[in-house]
């Protein structure tokens, strides 16, 4: 009888440890907890060219991550790309509405992300707001194209 109880306890512990491990993987490793902890608010930004920006890319201010890109779609009326940014709620009301959004690259070959540069306005960005001042991603081919074009305009030596 004692042995039976021991076996049952062992199996119970095993099942609990197994599910505990799954929970650990879900919360600590895949960052599920972070997702639910932080409520966020949405703002949109329109870009001429998003050049390889992907959903879930970080949104930073002064290099600190404050949110993520939630959605990117194309607006056929304006011929521009619209990115929806999810910004953590604790920054709600602290980002001026004349903030400048740039698409930057982490390192030379790194991932694209959005860098926000706060402006001087008194009014803050709120839920559903729009960032109007934006700078598109630098597309390497275009820069090289411009460089070659300006070179060919120069008179031959």
């Amino acid at each position: 009888m004692v042995k039976n109880r021991l076996i049952e306890t062992g199996v119970g512990l095993f099942v609990l440890i197994g599910f505990g491990a799954l929970l650990f993987l879900a919360i600590q490793v895949s960052g599920l907890g972070e997702f639910y902890q932080d409520e966020s608010f949405k703002v949109t930004a329109r870009f001429d060219n998003i050049g390889g920006l992907k959903t879930n890319a970080p949104v930073t201010i002064a290099g600190v991550e404050v949110g993520r890109v939630q959605d990117i779609h194309y607006d056929p009326e304006e011929f521009r790309a619209v990115a929806t940014l999810n910004i953590q709620n604790r920054y709600h009301g602290h980002i001026p509405d004349d903030t400048f959004a740039k698409i930057l690259t982490a390192g030379l070959l790194g991932e694209k992300y959005i860098g926000l540069q706060p402006g001087g306005s008194e009014d803050p960005l709120t839920q559903g707001g729009e960032i109007t001042i934006t700078q598109s991603s630098l597309v390497l081919e275009e820069i090289i194209g411009q460089f070659l074009f300006s070179k060919s305009q120069e008179p031959l030596p």
Partner: peptide, 14 residues
């Protein structure tokens, strides 16, 4: 047992 053991393996590996 196998899925539970695999979860345990991954967690302890991390």
């Amino acid at each position: 047992s196998v899925p539970l053991l695999a979860a345990l393996f991954s967690s302890l590996g991390v």
